[in-house]
């Protein structure tokens, strides 16, 4: 099971990102765990400066915007 974190302090875009990932995973039938990390410490830990950022299995894969559906599908493969 993939462990996905969405970093960002609860802005609308961060919530959209988390929802979109969960929704896409549901459609593809992939089992994932999506967390929202709203604390500032996570940003230091992953050296991220633009939110929302997406971390898949401890790897930062995306920063600064709501990702496209295709990108999400790629991460879920």
């Amino acid at each position: 099971m993939k462990d996905i974190k969405v970093l960002g302090s609860g802005c609308a875009k961060c919530n959209n990102t988390a929802d979109l990932i969960a929704e896409t995973a549901g459609e593809l039938g992939v089992e994932v765990q999506v967390h929202k990390e709203t604390g500032p410490e996570a940003l230091v830990h992953y050296s991220v400066m633009s939110t929302p950022a997406v971390v898949v299995d401890d790897q930062v894969v995306h920063t600064g915007s709501v990702p496209d559906r295709e990108q999400i599908e790629e991460w879920l493969q």
Binding site: P40, L43, S47, V48
Partner: peptide, 12 residues
């Protein structure tokens, strides 16, 4: 809304 991540990024 991006002031916090920017602040952290610059400071670190």
């Amino acid at each position: 809304c991006s002031s916090v991540p920017v602040f952290i990024g610059f400071t670190s």
